[in-house]
Design a protein around this nucleic acid. Structure first.
Length: 616
RNA sequence: GGUCCCAUAGCUCAAUGGAUAGAGCACCUGCCUUCUAAGCAGGCGGUUACAGGUUCGACCCCUGUUGGGAUCACCA
């Protein structure tokens, strides 16, 4: 039991003794004492003063006296305006430090026997991954790590959107214009290679459309369909999809290819496999560079027909209903949603049908009581409908569904747009941040004498640390402005700032090793100084912070915690000397405290998917 | 139009209903003869979009307003 829980229970008992009122220990509010006041923790007395029927200051004084009698680890207290500020004894902090150093599981909870599935990334296969995917992937990965840390068995999955019109466009484009080129023959990464043909297709379509606009058929369409006052230009902008479906030659060829794929045509399926294979090789590389992975991959080509049995099930249970034309619907108007189609009148499924089927399949595959879907906030409505529908169907996992909805990533210039070429490519971005790290490192010459491989490894960690922290420090729900220049900053509130505090610690640890310094005297040290207590308080808070981050699916809590801890360490480093401390017990204590800070920083950043360099 | 989300320093972000709303960037000033200055300290910068309400206490909860975004397809 840590000191906060001890205090809560003691306060509850004391209020009972003094005033005969019962207060739940968990309801006792205890915060770290703000810097300008004396103490480690502050108990908020206002709510208790009511039970005491005394003024907050009087009650605080009485409760403080009683607590000091009963809790051995309270060394002192003071009262300021209804706040009871508690000093925790050095003895408690000494014990805490040595116990946490001996606990390799510090910050983690034991296995809870429960299983959770986390779905993230889930890209289309017609284009390489971009900045938006990076946010998704980092959130998914970090949440997986967090859930594991608090005791869950985690299954990491993605569903790859490997079929449909998009990939057919790339296929057709390659078939017509590729001249037998391959990623191998051109030296282009597979996903970029396929993406290039997608872009080429869109170019060709644009050309075809421009040409078509000069034909009599276009005149007819314009005259027949234009809205009042609509310019020719505006009209054709709006008309593009309709044109693609009704008039485009390339459009017809793509639809034909999709039909052949659905019919299982050998040549088409073969081409599809080949091109997706290239894409997967590219994705593997990107995931590897990002340091993430999956336990199981689902493919839309395997799941897109799922869900039909659920339709029957839902009709039988009266959750769904059938309209005259044969289409099947679910009516969620009583839950504040609309009626939603589940099955088209021609009997084919829609997006949500597939998701219903996939959810059930996954439950059968893994038996996870909970599923976390990491998907952008654009699909909030979809997931509300999906979850509500699964609940009404009585699915056993329906209450454990969570949509980790995250805001869009925008550039300072606004949204990323494929057409305007403003999409930030994931591979390019990683290369760039690592390059900047190298540039900055070269000026510092701190890694001279380190092997080139090791240097590169450290630069990779620093560059990616900057990028990842920049993204992870923002609350998932908020849309974020991604300024490429700031994302590679290595100073201030950044990943490298935190890494640097770790590197400083690492330097100390190496010196202990080299000089064979004994740390036995640490326990004799005292009194503990404010800079040291600040560190201890922060470390003390770590397990609760991990739990909170996991429960809220919010890695940004942990990111901000790590920054705060690093800041405290830098201050400690600046203010107090470790090796030149006044006494050998002070030196030993500060080394132990540094070591523990290093453990927590490494562990916390690890949960964010950020690695620590050993020099920088 | 209905529903949902967001609004905090010039910019990017913090703040379980608790004390004087905090960091970083930018700008200005100091600090390397001592464990790595990717650091530390200080200055500048706020009507927490607006108006009410609940509360001993509100950036936080409730109501309304304004501004921005998303969504409401027999698309995925």
């Amino acid at each position: 039991m840590n000191i906060i829980q001890t205090l809560q229970q003691a306060v509850s008992a004391v209020v009972q003794q003094l005033y005969g009122e019962s207060v739940e220990p968990a309801k006792v509010i205890i915060n770290p004492t703000p810097a300008d006041f004396e103490g480690d923790y502050s108990i908020v007395i206002f709510p208790l003063a009511k039970a005491a029927r005394k003024s907050p200051d009087v009650a605080a004084q009485e409760i403080g006296e009683a607590l000091r009698q009963q809790v051995v680890d309270i060394s002192d207290f003071n009262v300021v305006k209804g706040f009871l500020n508690i000093h925790v004894s050095d003895r408690y902090w000494q014990t805490f430090l040595s116990e946490s150093l001996n606990n390799p599981q510090f910050g983690r909870q034991p296995k809870n026997g429960s299983k959770v599935m986390v779905e993230y990334s889930s890209p289309n296969t017609n284009k390489p991954l971009h900045l938006g995917h990076i946010r998704n992937i980092l959130l998914g990965w970090s949440c997986s790590q967090l859930l594991e840390a608090v005791g869950y068995d985690v299954v990491k999955v993605q569903i790859i959107n490997d079929r449909g019109v998009a990939i057919c466009k790339s296929m057709l484009s390659w078939q017509k214009f590729g001249e037998g080129q391959t990623p191998e023959s051109t030296g282009i990464k597979g996903d970029h290679f396929v993406g290039d043909y997608y872009v080429l297709f869109e170019q060709k379509i644009k050309e075809e459309y421009t040409q078509w606009q000069k034909t009599p058929a276009a005149d007819t369409a314009f005259e027949g369909r234009k809205k009042a006052e609509q310019s020719r230009e505006d009209f054709f902008k709006e008309y593009k999809n309709k044109w693609f479906n009704d008039h485009s030659q390339l459009g017809a060829e793509v639809r034909d290819m999709l039909l052949r794929w659905e019919a299982g045509d050998k040549a088409t399926v073969g081409l599809w496999r080949q091109m997706n294979g290239w894409v997967y090789q590219g994705f593997e590389k990107t995931y590897g560079d990002l340091g993430v992975g999956f336990d199981k991959l689902y493919y839309e080509s395997d799941t897109y027909l799922l869900g039909k049995d659920i339709v029957e099930d839902g009709l039988g249970k009266g959750v769904f209903f059938k309209k005259e034309d044969g289409s099947v619907w679910v009516d969620l108007t009583d839950a504040g949603h609309d009626q939603k189609i589940i099955l088209r009148s021609d009997g084919t499924s829609v997006y949500i049908t597939q998701d219903l089927g996939t959810a059930r399949m996954r439950y059968h595959d893994f038996g996870a009581e909970r599923i976390v879907y990491v998907v952008a906030s654009e699909q909030d409505y979809h997931f509300q409908v999906l979850f509500e529908t699964l609940k009404r169907l009585g699915e056993p996992y329906a209450n454990g569904l969570y949509h980790l909805s995250y805001g869009l990533v925008e550039l300072p210039s606004g949204r990323m747009k494929t057409r305007e070429g403003t999409v930030v490519d994931a591979d390019d971005l990683m290369t760039e941040v690592i390059r900047i790290a190298g540039e900055q490192s070269g000026e510092r010459a701190e890694m001279d004498g380190v092997s080139p491989e090791k240097q590169l490894e450290n630069l990779r960690k620093i560059g990616l640390g900057a990028l990842k922290f920049f993204i992870m420090k923002v609350h998932p729900k908020k849309k974020m402005i991604f300024n490429p220049e700031e994302s590679v900053d290595l100073q201030g509130q950044t990943g490298p700032y935190i890494q640097y505090s770790y590197v400083r610690i690492n330097g100390l640890m190496q010196r202990i090793e080299k000089e064979g310094i004994s740390l036995d005297e640490a326990a004799q040290y005292g009194p503990i100084l404010p800079q040291e207590r600040d560190l201890l308080l922060a470390i003390h808070e770590y397990p609760a912070k991990v739990k909170e981050a996991a429960e809220n699916y919010d890695p940004s809590l942990l990111a901000n915690f790590c920054y705060d801890l690093a800041r405290k360490y830098h201050r400690f480093w600046h203010d107090l000397s470790v090796f030149n401390a006044d006494s050998s017990s002070a030196r030993a204590f500060r080394l132990q405290l540094s070591r523990m800070t290093g453990h927590v920083l490494r562990s916390g950043m690890g949960l964010l998917g950020i690695e620590m360099p050993d020099r920088m």
